[in-house]
Design a protein around this nucleic acid. Sequence first.
DNA 1: AGAACACATAGACGATCGTCAATGGATTTG
DNA 2: CAAATCCATTGACGATCGTCTATGTGTTCT
Lengths: 106, 106
Amino acid sequence: MTAAEAADLAAAFKALADPVRLRIASIVACCPAGEVCMGEIAAEFSVSGPTISHHLRKLREAGVLSSERRATEVYYRVRSDRLDALIGQLSAMKAMLGQGSCATPA
Amino acid sequence: MTAAEAADLAAAFKALADPVRLRIASIVACCPAGEVCMGEIAAEFSVSGPTISHHLRKLREAGVLSSERRATEVYYRVRSDRLDALIGQLSAMKAMLGQGSCATPA
DNA sequence: AGAACACATAGACGATCGTCAATGGATTTG
DNA sequence: CAAATCCATTGACGATCGTCTATGTGTTCT
């Protein structure tokens, strides 16, 4: 894998590298409508609203979430393409564990 | 997902959240023998040996790598069980994107 | 227009991170 | 035992992070 690819994927992993953000991502992915707004997310945590907002921004900047404003509320969704990129990298690593092939990486 | 699960998985994602460490993991997974020692890894980077050693420790502490000393050299391997845990979490999130089910998470 | 609501931004704080040069084991070889 | 090799640890540095309170920005409703 190239240094540029590593930097891009590492940024996405970094977004999921905090317990609060990982739970946020899980909550957004799991919610019935597939989208949820900040207030509902913040209700699940014991941290302040601005802190949740800060985490949501990190997740959006890393490409893990997308956001859309509707009236006074802002709805967040999980971007499946970004999830695919992460799953792809991990699966590729797993696929060639010690078997000497090395298809795409390292 | 529970707060404890989130903390554990976030720690693993955090280990992969640095470009150097992500490339290290990829190199270890991809190497023909399935294991590699620090010197060979350091040769692929432009950072100092102790820095690579520091990153290897982080990866080991996060459960992503295992290490084994043989003579003067220390060999590192990727732990496939840990990879499975990460792939599992991301796949679970992807599987229930907006479809309202929510099997195990959030 | 003005009040009320939902969210974002700004600034500050201690804590952690990534990197380095220098030093300290552990193991093999002369 | 002594020298050499491979790696880990220590201590330090600026930089980034996660969190908070306080303030700003849109949007809706009366």
